[in-house]
Amino acid sequence: MTRWPIALFGPALAALSLAGPAAARDSLGMFASWAAFRDPGVPRCYAIARPLPSSRPADYRAFASVGTWPRRQVRGQVHFRLSRKLAAEPRISLVVGDRRFALTGGGGDAWALDKGMDAAIVAAMRAAGQMSISATDARNRRFTDRYDLTGAATAMDAASVGCARR
Rank of each mutant, 00 (worst) to 15 (best):
W34Q: 01
R50M: 13
V66Y: 08
R3T: 07
G29Q: 03
E89T: 11
T68N: 15
T150H: 12
I6G: 10
K85C: 06
A22C: 09
D137M: 05
W4E: 07
R126W: 04
S93K: 11
I6H: 12
L28V: 01
A158E: 13
A32D: 15
R38N: 15
A153G: 12
V74P: 03
A15V: 05
I92F: 03
A159Q: 13
M131W: 07
W4G: 00
M117E: 15
S55C: 01
G108I: 05
A135I: 12
P21T: 03
G105V: 11
Q73S: 09
G129H: 08
D137Y: 03
S160P: 05
D59L: 04
L103W: 07
F63Q: 07
Y60T: 07
S132F: 04
F101K: 12
F63G: 02
D98W: 00
A58E: 14
G20V: 01
I48W: 08
R38H: 15
E89N: 11
A127T: 09
P43H: 08
E89C: 00
S134D: 02
C45I: 07
L113W: 00
A110N: 11
A158L: 12
W111V: 06
A7E: 10
P5R: 06
I92C: 03
R56W: 01
A12S: 15
A36Q: 09
Y46V: 10
C45N: 06
A87D: 15
P70W: 12
A112M: 06
A127Q: 13
G107Y: 02
P90Y: 02
D39F: 14
A19D: 13
I48T: 09
G106D: 14
R75Q: 14
G116D: 13
D148H: 02
A36I: 10
A119V: 03
G108C: 05
G41M: 05
L94R: 04
D98T: 08
L16S: 08
G97M: 05
R75K: 15
A19T: 04
R91D: 13
M156S: 08
M1C: 05
I92M: 01
W111S: 00
S17I: 03
S132W: 04
L16K: 11
R50W: 06
G107L: 09
L113A: 14
G10V: 14
T150P: 01
P21C: 00
G67F: 04
R72D: 05
P57Q: 05
A62H: 08
R56G: 01
P57A: 10
A138S: 10
A87W: 04
A110M: 06
A49F: 05
K85E: 14
A64Y: 09
P51N: 12
R3P: 00
R72K: 05
A24I: 00
L8N: 14
A120L: 06
M125P: 07
R100K: 14
A87R: 07
F31V: 04
A35C: 13
V96P: 02
L13T: 11
R126T: 10
G97C: 05
V96Q: 01
T104Y: 00
D26H: 09
P21K: 00
A124I: 03
R72E: 08
R142F: 05
A32S: 12
A14Y: 00
R84D: 04
A12P: 08
W34V: 03
V78I: 08
A110Y: 09
W4M: 09
R71N: 13
R84Y: 06
C45R: 06
